[in-house]
Each structure stands twice: as C-alpha cells, then as structure tokens.
Design a protein around this nucleic acid. Structure first.
Lengths: 208, 208, 208, 208
DNA sequence: GATGAATGAGACTTCATTCAT
DNA sequence: AATGAATGAAGTCTCATTCAT
C-alpha cells in the first residue's frame, strides 16, 4: 500500500484532481441509482476510469463515501451559514434560510440526493447507521441557533428548539424529495409556503 | 408452483402462518439491518427456517417486500383513519392525528422503520424507486383531507394544502427517525410540540 | 416407501391412470420446453396435480423419463413394424416405411420430439448418455431388416447395411426436425423425395 | 465493466488468451458432460481457474455459449469451403465434402459434439431454441450450392435441393454421432459408403 | 500512478426429493 | 392415494478488494 492512504500532509495535484473526479462521479451515480445501486463499477464507468483507480485513491468504498459526505456537508453548511449571516431579525433569518436552501437545492440536486442516500443507508460494520446522528447534528445545531436568536430577541414564542429544528430540517429535506420526485412541482412556491408555515409556528401570540 | 400463486381466496392455515411469520421476520431484519442488509439468508435465519422456505412461499424477494409494504401500509392507514374519525373540529383532528401516530410509532417502531427503508430504497428493475410516489400519495391525500376540512369549516387560514401535507408528513416521519436514533428522546412530548406547531401554522390570524 | 416402487405384479386402475397422465404431461412439456426445461414442477402444473404426486408414482425423475421412453418407443416400433408388414418387395417396404413414418410424425409430433430430446440429453449418474446406443439400436435393427430383405431378394446393390440404416434413420429424424422448425414445410413432399433418394441409393445398377 | 464489453477492435493479449482458454474448456466440458451438465463450475474447474474469471471475461453464460458457437462454426464453415474449392465436377465436390468433413470430425470431435449440443439445447429467454434455424441454415445453403452446381452442369437428376441438403446434413452429423457412440466404428469407411449413397441418389438416370 | 485481471464471498433462485398429514 | 410444506444442494451472477505489471 502506498503512502496516499495516510491521507496526511501533501497530496499531489493529480491525487487531488483524481479524488475530486471520483467523488463527483460517486455523487452523480448515487443520486441516480441510489446508495444500494452505486457500485464501484458504475462509479468508475461514469468517471471513465478503471475500477482499480478508485481502490488506489481510496482505501475502501467506505472511505470514498465518507469523503463524499464530507465534501457535500462542508458545502451545504457553508452555504447555510452564508445565506443568513446578514439578516437582522430572527424571523428574517428563518425565512431567508428556507428560501436560500431551496435555491441551493435547485442548483445542486445531486449533492442533496446523494447526501440523503448515504446518510440514510450507509452502515458501519456493526450494522448501525454510519451517519445516524452526527450528520444531522451539525445542521440541527445551526437551526437551533436561529431559534435561540429569536428567543433571545423575543421575536419567537416559547417552544422546544430541538423539536422545531428537527421539524424544520425534515420539512426542508422533504420539500426537496417531493420536488425530486415530482419534476413539475414549483420549488420556490413551496419554499415560500414553508417559510410562512415556520414563521407562523414560531412567532409570538398576537396580542389579545 | 404452490397454491398461493393462484392468489386464490383460500390459503391453508399453515401457508398463512408461514407467510405471516416470514413477513414478521423480514420487518425485524429490515428494521435492524436496513433494506440493503436484509438478505434472504438473514431473514430465514431470524425466522429459524431454511432459505428455501421463503422461496417456496414467495415467488421472489420483491414479492416478499411488496407483501411487507402492503401489510404495514394497511395497518398504518387503518390506524390513522381510525384515530381521527371521532374528532369534531379540524383542529382536533390535526392534533389528534399527530398524537395518535406517535403512539402507533411507539408501539410498532419496526414496522415504521421497515416501511421507511423499503419505500426509500426498493427499486424496480428499471432502476426507478418502486414506491416513489404512490406510497406517499395515499397518506398525503389523507392529510390533505384534514386541511380541506379545516378550510371548509373556516378554522384554517388559506394555504397550499399539498405543501402543508408534505411538511406534516415529513415532520411526523422525522419525529420517528429522531426518536429511533435517540432512544432517550421523549416521543410524546415531541408529538405534543409538533401538534402545537401545526395548529399555529394552520389557524386563522388572531383578530387584531 | 410404498409397494408401487417395485413396479411389480398388480397396479391398481388409479395407479395406471395416474402414471399414464403424468407420462402424457411429461411428453408435452418436454416437447415444448426441451429436456432441460422439463422440471417436475412444470410437468405437475401441466397435469394439474401437485409435484408430490409424481414422486409418489415414480421413484425418481429418471424413472419417469424411462417410462416415457418405453411408451413412446413401444408405440413407434409397433407402428413401424405394422406399416411395412404387408409390403411385398423390399423396395416397397423401404418406400412405405418412410412415408408411413412421416405420417406418424404428423400425428404425434410431441412424442417424436420428446423421444429425441430425452435420448439425446438424458444422462446416467456417471455422465454417459442414458440412451446412447440402445434406443437407436432397436430401430436400426429393424431398418437393417429391410435392407437384408433387399439383399436377399437381389433388389438392392451391395452396401454396408449398418451405414445405410444409420443414414436412413438420421434422414427420417431430421426430416421431422426440419418440419418441426419450419411449420410451413411440406412434410409429405419431403417424405416422397426422401423415399426416392433411398430407393436410388439402394437399387442395383441399371443394366448397361 | 472491462474493455471487452465495448466490443472494440483491440483486446489485450491476455484477454484474448483467457477467452480462448475458457472457450476451449467449455467445448471440452460440453462434449463430455452435455449442454445441461456444463456448469460454469465445471468449466472453470476444467480450465483451472476460479468461477469468477468466467464472469469477468463473459457477460453471461449465454455470451460464452454464443462465442463457443461462433468459433466452432467459423472453423467448420471455413474447413468445408476449403475442402471442396478445388474440385472440378459437382460429383467430386459432393464426394469430397463428405470425406473431408469426416476427416475434420476425426480431428475435432469435441468441437462437433459441442456445436451439436449447444444448437440442439440452448434456448432463448422466451423458451425457443437459440440456434434453431439460422445455425443450420448457413450449412444448408452451402450444401445446396453443391447441388445447384450439379444441376447446372447436368450431372445431377432433378430433385428438391432443400430436401437433399437436409438429408445430407443429417447423414453427416449422424455419422459423427454414431462414431462418437461406437468408438470402434470405422469413420472413414462410413464416409466412403455415405459418399456412394449420395452420389447414387443424385446422379442422372443411366441411359436406357 | 494506473490498469486489467483475478478472486471469493455472498446474493437470489430453481429444483428434485423427502416427509408428515 | 395425495398434498402441501420444507429442505439443501447447486446454479448464475454481482461485487469489493487485491495484485502483478
């Protein structure tokens, strides 16, 4: 086995390019064929390389999948954080986040699909879901941050932030899933409706 | 070919019992090992029978999976319909449905897990998701029925019923997923919070 | 195991009828699906009985196949013998046999097909063809009898009777095979041509 | 998927060698164990390789079988054509073809056996014989060519060329089959007798 | 760095056969 | 006499992984 496996200090340019190419192919194949259907053969074929190349650059299929998740998650989180950093009120952040994520989904459906496929299917050797908790956790914390802000500013009524975050996350992901399954569906209109739903669900009671 | 294939009205008692036993084992194995990990070997082992028995009672693995879905879906839909049929207002139906489903999930987690696994992973020979749209559609229609009622009675504000139903469904499923992943999580409290969320999201504006 | 296996003295009427029914179904299935495709399931299904019945009446699949061969061969040989017994000259017998066999083939194609399938495919446990030599041998002897008669009467020129019989048999069987594959082919015209061929191939030289 | 699938012009040397080796093993196993007995296990064992190697070089068992047929048929047809191309009269071609084919059969019995096994047993997914008509058709046309020549030159009497070709083909094949079953049989003597038979069956009537 | 080639485990399925009822 | 049920071996195929070149 060569030094690459250590993944350590310096990766050559070719090394980086190849890994990126393989990851990109993996994302597309997973998005199309599902986690279960994404064999190394298919990924290699999509990338126009031989199967052995993948094994050369990745210790195992698991490592490839983990790299895929890492890249997508990084991108998504960066995007989410970025999309709300300039909003002033918690309500605006809330609404902005939903609309922005919808925009991101429209631009990168394969990534979102692949992330979903892997995190709901990939398992550790012991049979447990590899990304059971952690994968969502990072995003849940970001969402909870929005609600904490609203609670702090007094914009939002009292509610369990974890439950709201789980619900929020589910609603956004399934908006995507529904859109992916129903090509004609209007994603932006859906997002706008969804934003309404959460604004109403979180805001303080109207004064009597 | 055995009598079952004819699909005729009467199956022997043993036939019914075996099919039920195999379906039950399949549900447990899928819930534990995931759709991809649920091999006929594992299912047979769990049922304490030989692999051939499954092939004897089911034409193919697909047929077994479809039977699993059919049984669970029937149970779930019956339950959902039953749980709300006596409520008077749409708001009560809405709240009641969420609480009742949570109760059902607490009682039958494996079924819900298996249904989710199969419907998000099983694919037709052509590569498309076997239960892509139709499976959810039935439930979405039921949920839309609740919102239609609320619109009719004037309890609910105007909103897109399909978006609300998709969101509602996602929220409930992910409540389950979160609970399944976090054993210590309080499912009933989550359900109560969720009911609040949807009641607020759907109700008419408070008068100024 | 019951007494039936011994095949001995007395078989009940039902026993006989069942065996005949199963043999008949086997013949049809083999003719349609080939020896390799003729599973006990298919045969049972065709007969409208359960698979177990076959095992009840026949010790093994081999025994069933042997019974099939026995019945068909008996019928064919009787027919062949019968069809030529009244002819006076060897030439007439030769011509008559070919025409008569063609007629028989038209009436019982499944039997001929099945006989051919079994004798060219069924193997003994040691891997050798079960009906390699004997099956054809009986027929070859009958054909040699015709040539011997012609040699005795002086109608036929000198030739190797075994080679002629093998050729004759092959020609007749392949006439059937060609007809079976080409439904529009004129079997009777073929037989007439074939008779001409063998009459010319066997007759004494025309005097100079 | 390996390069072979593309069907491209160039296969690596190893690829070609392996395919040839596997085809050769397949031929021997089929000749010995019959089409039905020729499992991939047996073929791999005979070749001294693992089962997976066959799957690596051939998409499916069908593809292997088709390659086997292609190679044998090519060889046989080339041989037949070659063996008669220098003969002057149709009668000489006829006699020469039979003797030459017998010689070829003596040299390559396994090929002939395998070709016969596959073409009479291999079936398409729909149950019809894979090589029902076309396989024989090519050879029948070649034989008809001989008769057409004899008709054209006036050497042969009038007869149905298709019937004669079918008979000729059957006679030659069964000569082989008889020899294969009866090791002591004199193949060359048989061929000589057979040539006599067809010369007599086709020649013009002796002048009165 | 990259590839083709090979492997062996494991998946699904079919099938002849056995057995209790 | 018949059946449904069960078995286990064997078959074909897929796949992640390893290795020599």
């Amino acid at each position: 086995m060569s030094a690459r496996a250590a993944g350590g200090d310096k990766q050559s340019f070719i090394e980086q390019a190849r890994r990126a190419q393989i990851v990109a192919s993996a994302i597309k194949v997973i998005a199309e064929a599902g986690y279960g259907g994404a064999s190394l053969s298919l990924i290699a074929e999509h990338a126009g390389i031989s199967k052995g190349v993948i094994s050369y650059h990745f210790t195992s299929k698991s490592e490839l999948m983990e790299e895929v998740v890492r890249r997508i998650l990084k991108e998504v989180v960066e995007f989410v954080v970025d999309s709300v950093k300039d909003e002033a009120s918690a309500t605006a952040v809330l609404r902005g986040q939903i609309l922005a994520v919808a925009g991101h989904m429209r631009e990168r459906p394969a990534e979102i699909m692949a992330l979903h496929e892997i995190s709901s299917n990939m398992r550790a050797p012991d049979g447990s879901l590899r990304y059971g908790i952690e994968a969502a956790e990072e995003i849940l914390r970001l969402l909870e941050g929005i609600y904490e802000m609203g609670h702090h500013t007094g914009e939002f009524r009292e509610f369990d932030r974890r439950v709201m975050a789980v619900t929020h996350n589910a609603a956004v992901i399934d908006m995507f899933a529904y859109w992916a399954t129903h090509p004609g569906h209007d994603l932006d209109a859906h997002a706008a409706e969804l934003a309404d739903i959460f604004v109403r669900a979180t805001r303080k009671e109207s004064p009597a």
